[in-house]
Design a protein around this nucleic acid. Structure first.
Length: 889
RNA sequence: GCCCGAGUGGUGGAAUGGUAGACACGGGGGACUUAAAAUCCCCUGCCCUCAACCGGCGUGUGGGUUCGAGUCCCACCUCGGGCACCA
């Protein structure tokens, strides 16, 4: 803040004022109470294994998304969500709940790693410093956190349990029959007894069938490779963007288009696609449950929608096409392949089929494809493109796509596919617009009814055949193909036709998901080590629980190794032991931290059974909407896994969720150093006080809305608090009795504030407190009513209300006021009087006046009578306590 | 391109289909003061009017439903978010 726009009274009070009113010294008051709360353990939450008392109360877990302790420090936008959840937590605590309201730090991550690379210093001490700084900045805002429960993901005593959960995932598989995760040992027993022929389980379709006898004859390494297709944490290969010159893997947004293909954004070095060894999490096993269990959650609708779209469920059919050699080709029988389609009803419109270039089937057909050399060249050219480029080029909506670009493909000559519905032979193509990773990696092309197929068919002059016609609102399958003759499809809508066709061709109805398994490895130093050892014979050995935590070794260099491996690959002792050199991604530690708060110092378990049984799940979770498809999905996945393994009692971790909006600069731009519009909360707290900051951030606008900061606006909040302060002095001087009018306003305010805090409508809660104070100033207020007012204000302005509180205990443990239903009813109401929907006057009547009385009073108004002069009243609508509308001709 | 969400005074915003603009900022005027700051009181959507009254217009645009629409329905415009060849 460049200049002080507002000078608080405390600093410049005149001698005269000082006599009347003790100055409101926010600095002194806030410091005093923050100390006292800490000393008195006002916000400490008891642990079920040690405590008693409050534990008999109903629990309430109010959680903030813990921050990454960035070196840039906080700006005024950051605490907004924390203030909201703190207001909520404070009210629930006052209302008698046993509230768990903790805070911690997501402290593994890239910025500390960058620091380490630049300074060649260990990121640990640096991170500790940032945590301490960040914590200090939070503390002066006066949150009711139980700091005794603080966690930080980079501390070994914390990540020991992150590693422990990883091992549990590694040692688990997903039983699709029981629809839950199970111990891998149980699967091994099944294999030993009966092979996998009778075991229904998640596989990627590449595990051939084997008998028990065969299983037992496999080598340990073969068995390990098979099990890898079942484990929930598994090793595999993923295509990554590899930059040879930089010796590192790049994210999609670190790549730009160069003249000869993609290049790195920094330096402009060529980037290619390369398959690299990675660890994965089989989140797709939970796709259905993640989708289904979303429904009952009390979450913002848009977050649910985003997750739903991300999971991307679609119902369709798998239909088998057989392959045949073209006439004259000596190979008679080539087997078959499945296509996935959501429009089985268009099966008669298939004019060609397309297989993804990467599909294994294409390689298997090598010997019968007569134009193999060109096909091979094409496959290679596709492989060189990045995912981004491939999309960019063939997406007609993209600005970069030109007329000459677009979908590319090539026909596999020498073979044809047979449409199972009508026995028709259609050409087989491979094309870049078909993804190997979705569905079956092969599609039946119906150019008449699919935009992409249409574009492709146009480009390569493939036939287009219409089989479905739209009639008004319904689609009907038109007469085509052999089925028509039986009349079966005439007049059927497409959904029914789809089912009928699927049955007819003996396809199966299947459910597919867009969501992919999550890569669970980073080639970085500053993350949790993956607790596994690779033996020289290729066997992977998980660490024993006793051996955890596997702590990060010291390294000489924090730079990437240059060959795509993490800096850990350069540590001799580490590699000698065979330890995994990848580390876990940033989302590992944050996927379960809310469980650790339940019992943060437990050395025997991530949390005691007692603690987990008591706290169960998060009742209210507050944080940014940007985590919709990351953290919020991963946490649900891990939680469901822990539920399957009976470590937690609930299916979902976060019962309710609220998103806070961002605070932008006063100029409407994003608050950042770049624009020079950053407002530091420390300075605001110093100048106006934490209470003013808290009050203002809640008053500014709807909690979830993105709002610009206003340097002038906070003055209003400061003024409000000063007026409360002055009123308290006045009350102390007067022996005021109960005031009927004040009491009415107060009880309405109790109702409003209580409901508004519950619904996160903090801005209107503050507004109603302002209205109440305005009324108190106009009339007067009794000492007791003022005390209640302070209680209502306490969650927003905890320091000043504690200072003015005259009770024996802290105001924050003093109880939450209840309103008297009799006092919130008005004796009189004022109604607008409308003529033909336009307001022409108003009447004030008794609240319980009958419609007839109200009508008579309205009609008696002189102005209304003027309007009615010479007109006929058609009808009169009386909405009790709201409005009267007189309809005339 | 597809899927969500939002457009209200000078500003942030309020409003179960029922008197649009609560509350606050800013602005104008006044009181107090030698003066300023702070504080207190009054006014403050736009047009018409010296002013008040009266009246007219007003919630992105155009239609519709309704006694009555910021709110519900349809179309469009603008902005924000999510997805991105998912067959």
């Amino acid at each position: 803040m460049e200049k002080c726009l507002y000078m608080p009274t405390s600093a410049k009070a005149t001698a005269r004022q000082r006599k009347l009113v003790a100055p409101y010294d926010h600095i002194k008051i806030e410091k005093k109470w923050q100390k006292a709360w800490e000393a008195n353990k006002t916000y400490q939450t008891e642990n079920p294994s040690t405590g008693s008392g409050r534990l008999r109360r109903k629990k309430m877990y109010v959680l903030d998304m813990f921050p990454y302790p960035s070196g840039a420090g906080l700006h005024v936008g950051h605490p907004r969500g924390y203030i909201g959840s703190d207001v909520y937590a404070r009210m629930q605590r006052m209302a008698g709940f046993n509230v768990l309201h903790p805070m911690g730090f997501d402290s593994f991550g890239l910025p500390a790693e960058q620091y380490a690379i630049q300074t060649k210093k260990h990121p640990g001490p640096f991170t500790d410093k940032l945590v301490a700084q960040y914590k200090k900045q939070l503390e002066i805002i006066g949150f009711s956190y139980d700091w005794g429960r603080e966690v930080a993901t980079h501390r070994p005593e914390y990540y020991k349990w992150t590693q422990w959960i990883f091992l549990k995932l590694y040692d688990a598989w997903y039983d699709t029959k029981k629809n839950k995760a199970r111990d891998i040992k149980e699967l091994i027993v099944m294999f030993e007894k009966s092979g996998n022929k009778s075991v229904a389980a998640v596989t990627d379709g590449t595990v051939p069938l084997f008998s028990a006898k065969e299983w037992n004859s496999f080598t340990a390494l073969d068995q390990q490779n098979i099990l890898m297709h079942y484990r929930l944490a598994y090793e595999g290969f993923a295509e990554v963007n590899w930059c040879e010159e930089m010796g590192t893997v790049l994210a999609n947004d670190e790549i730009v288009d160069g003249p000869n293909g993609p290049v790195s954004e920094r330096g402009g070095y060529p980037v290619i696609k390369k398959a690299m060894r990675q660890w994965f999490m089989r989140i797709t096993a939970y796709a259905n449950r993640l989708l289904k269990d979303l429904e009952p959650l009390d979450w913002p609708a848009n977050i649910k929608e985003i997750q739903k779209n991300w999971i991307g469920q679609s119902e369709g059919s798998e239909i088998e096409f057989t392959l045949q050699a073209k006439a004259g080709n000596p190979v008679p029988e080539l087997g078959s392949f499945n296509v996935f389609t959501t429009r089985a009803d268009t099966l008669f419109g298939v004019t060609y089929v397309v297989i993804a270039p990467e599909h294994q089937l294409v390689q298997d057909l090598k010997h019968v494809i007569t134009n193999w050399s060109v096909v091979e060249t094409y496959i290679k050219s596709v492989a060189q493109k990045t995912e981004q480029e491939r999309t960019m080029e063939s997406d007609p909506a993209s600005a970069k796509a030109s007329a000459t670009q677009g979908k590319t493909g090539i026909q596999l000559e020498g073979i044809v596919a047979v449409n199972p519905a009508n026995g028709e032979e259609v050409p087989v193509w491979i094309a870049d617009y078909v993804l190997a990773s979705y569905g079956t990696g092969a599609v039946m092309a119906v150019p008449a009814h699919d935009e992409r197929d249409f574009a492709f068919a146009k480009k390569y002059n493939l036939p287009i055949r219409t089989v479905v016609k739209a009639t008004d609102n319904n689609e009907h399958t038109t007469a085509y193909g052999t089925l028509v003759h039986s009349g079966e499809f005439n007049g059927m809508n497409s959904a029914a036709a789809k089912k009928a066709i699927t049955t007819f061709v003996k396809g199966k109805i299947v459910t597919k998901y867009k969501m992919r398994d999550a890569i669970f490895a980073r080639q970085r130093y500053w993350g949790e080590p993956i607790p596994l050892r690779h033996e020289v014979n290729g066997l992977i050995v998980p660490l024993k629980e006793k051996a955890l935590p596997l702590t990060l070794p010291n390294v000489k260099s924090y730079e990437p190794s240059g060959n795509g491996e993490s800096p850990l690959a350069g540590v001799k002792s580490w590699v000698k032991e065979g330890y995994e050199t990848n580390t876990m991604p940033g989302w590992a530690g944050s996927s379960w931290y809310f469980l650790r708060y339940m019992d943060p110092t437990n050395a025997k378990a991530f949390a005691s059974e007692k603690a987990v049984d008591y706290w169960r799940d998060v009742d209210m979770y507050v944080g940014g909407a940007e985590h919709a498809t990351g953290h919020l999905l991963y946490s649900r996945f891990w939680h469901k896994f822990l539920y399957d393994m009976e470590y937690v009692p609930t299916k979902e971790p976060f019962k309710a969720l609220r998103n806070q909006g961002l605070i932008g600069g006063a100029d409407g731009r994003k608050m950042s150093k770049r624009w020079g519009n950053v407002i530091n909360p420390d300075e605001v707290v110093k100048l106006y006080g934490a209470d003013s900051l808290r009050l203002f951030e809640m008053f500014l606008g709807p909690f979830e809305a993105h709002l610009p900061w206003s340097t002038e606006g906070i003055i209003g909040s400061r003024r409000f608090i000063e007026r409360v302060w002055r009123l308290s002095q006045k009350i102390a001087d007067e022996k005021a009795a109960s005031h009927q009018k004040g009491a009415k306003i107060l009880h309405k305010t109790i109702k409003k504030v209580t409901e508004d805090i519950q619904s996160f409508s903090f801005n209107t809660a503050v507004s109603s407190l302002m209205i109440c104070l305005n009324e108190f100033e106009k009339t007067s207020v009794s000492a007791n009513d003022f005390k209640i007012f302070l209680q209502l204000l306490a969650p927003f302005a905890p320091h000043v209300t504690e200072e003015l509180w005259t009770g024996n205990t802290s105001i924050h443990l003093s109880g939450w006021p209840k309103y008297d239903p009799k006092l919130i009813i008005d004796d009189e109401v004022t109604l607008g009087v409308q003529i033909n929907g336009k307001v022409r006057g108003e009447v004030t009547v008794a609240a319980d006046a009958s419609n007839e009385t109200v009508e008579a009073a309205a009609l008696a108004l002189p102005r209304i009578q003027e309007y009615l002069e010479g007109m006929t009243v058609k009808k009169i609508i009386v909405v009790p306590k709201r409005i009267i509308n007189i309809v005339i001709y």
